[in-house]
Amino acid sequence: MSRTPASTAAPDAGTPAGVLTAGVAARNPAWIQLLGLCPLLAVSSSAVTALALALASAGVLVGSNVTISMLRRLIPDFARLPAFVLIVATFTTCAVLLMEAYAFELYLRIALFVQIIVTNCMILGRAEAFASRRPVWPSLLDALGTAAGFALALVSLGLVREAVGRGTVFADMDMLFGPGAAGWTMTLPGDWPGLLIATLPPGAFIIAGLLLGLGNAAVRARRRNAGP
């Protein structure tokens, strides 16, 4: 598990808006800090599985950050990591049980990765760097911002892989949002036959690498324009 020094992570971490946006942009857990890489690559073969895991991770992150922040004066320092892990494991179990009850078909597609949310370093990282030192309210904002950043990374990769791999966008959304969402599927214009490899494991690595490289290039270009 990697630790992020809370002080250097975001220069504007004082204001609520700063706490919230730092998680999405400057400190994006997936693209900038490369935490939670396993679920990022594994469930991003389509937008719907990506979104489902993003929601489950968000629930666990918010629940454990708030709980840890509430209990921060009760948890002795030497036992804090085991205590954090147990709290995260408890919320992961809740997420698993909820998904089994309400979205079983979807759960079957990403079952393993919902269960191993507990080992996502992103969640333990936020607990250690933020929630264990701050009051409940900022911890909630921090969790929401980080969860949004993770969701953004997951869904963006999911959309690209689904579009390149199958030529559709937002297919099977009814598995997550009920029958009303069945019509959300969009097919790309033109007769794109789909490049199967994008949905297979090698495609995940290659597309993630390309997106990360393009992101780096964009950041560099902007910095060069902003500079003297």
């Binding site: 490369l34 490899i197 297979l200 494991p201 090698p202 495609g203 995940a204 690595f205 290659i206 993630a208 690498g209 390309l210 990360l212 490289g213 393009l214 780096n216 290039a217 560099r220």
Partner: peptide, 23 residues
């Protein structure tokens, strides 16, 4: 390696090619 791709991005692409081999 082109500057923006140094480090993790090119490592990810390399892992993709390795994964292709394992397929």
């Amino acid at each position: 390696v082109p500057e923006p791709f140094r480090g993790v991005p090119v490592a990810l692409v390399t892992a993709g090619i390795l994964s292709l081999g394992f397929m």
